[in-house]
């Protein structure tokens, strides 16, 4: 009897290392990581633009643009990510406008995922970046103004470098959150690693093992990111250390 159990165990272990983990990792690199990285980069670009629009002091017609961006941030922060994914993937095909969009908007699952994750990340990260920009003392703007720098150059050369340094920890958190949130992409038919573990569990009747395995891989990915965050933080505050060493 115990001999049978041991055989069973070694069989499972064998499958874990030669079959399950390779499949999970393959899906992880093909979908989880790519979805997360592409969406995060696009999200950061959206966030930066949004933050800059929202802190701008331009008036007139620009107020309408500001209102649109404010609405966007409100919308994506006040609705669940899963619902957003469903609307973009399952809902938009029914957005039929005669003459303009007779067939609705049909997106490939991966495209729908990228769009939703980018917009969602952009909404949250824009608030992070906006707060970071506003945390840079007003005197930095004045010092730059006093040597004749205009607003754009002051932002680019003086304010953003200081703001981005402050943003590294919260943005890293967003990125780690995004990696985990990509598991929701399973619900719009993307075969990312959580979906793969579900499919295998349905075949081998080992849900505990399969979901624990995929959890482990998520934890591994996120740990690598945490480590990267620590490295980035150190690199960005390098100036104090270096000159102390010289002194």
């Amino acid at each position: 009897m115990s001999c049978f159990a041991r055989k069973e165990l070694s069989k499972i272990l064998h499958s874990i290392f030669t079959d399950y983990l390779p499949q999970i990792f393959a899906a992880g690199f093909k979908y989880t990581i790519t979805l997360a990285i592409i969406s995060f980069i696009l999200g950061l670009i959206i966030a930066l633009v949004t933050a800059l629009v929202r802190i701008s002091d331009k008036g007139g017609g620009f107020l309408i643009i500001k209102a649109i961006f404010r609405f966007y941030v409100w919308l994506f922060r006040s609705t669940p990510l899963l619902v957003q994914l469903f609307i973009v993937y399952f809902g938009l095909p029914y957005l039929k406008i005669p003459g303009l969009l007779p067939n609705g908007i049909k997106l490939a699952p991966f495209t729908a995922g990228i769009i939703t994750f980018s917009l969602n990340t952009g909404a949250y990260a824009s608030e992070t970046i906006r707060a970071a920009i506003q945390s840079v003392p007003r005197e930095q703007w004045e010092a730059a103004a006093s040597i004749g720098m205009n607003r754009g150059k002051t932002l680019r050369r003086i304010i953003l470098p200081q703001a981005l340094k402050v943003s590294i920890p919260p943005l890293s958190n967003s990125f780690i959150g995004l990696v985990k949130d990509t598991s929701l992409a399973a619900s719009i038919t993307i075969v990312e690693m959580f979906e793969v573990s579900q499919q295998i569990a349905a075949e081998n009747y080992q849900p505990l093992i399969m979901y624990s395995l995929v959890a482990l891989v998520y934890a591994l990915f996120c740990s690598v990111l945490s480590w990267l965050q620590g490295w980035l933080e150190k690199a960005s505050s390098r100036h104090s250390k270096e000159s102390e060493a010289e002194a």
């Binding site: 930095q140 004045e142 010092a143 006093s146 004749g148 100036h239």
Partner: peptide, 18 residues
């Protein structure tokens, strides 16, 4: 701004520059 330069009580140097 080119013809006048301000020196502030709190220096306001750019901390990310040498």
């Amino acid at each position: 701004r080119k013809k006048t330069g301000m020196v502030f009580q709190s220096y306001n140097l750019f901390p990310h520059f040498t």
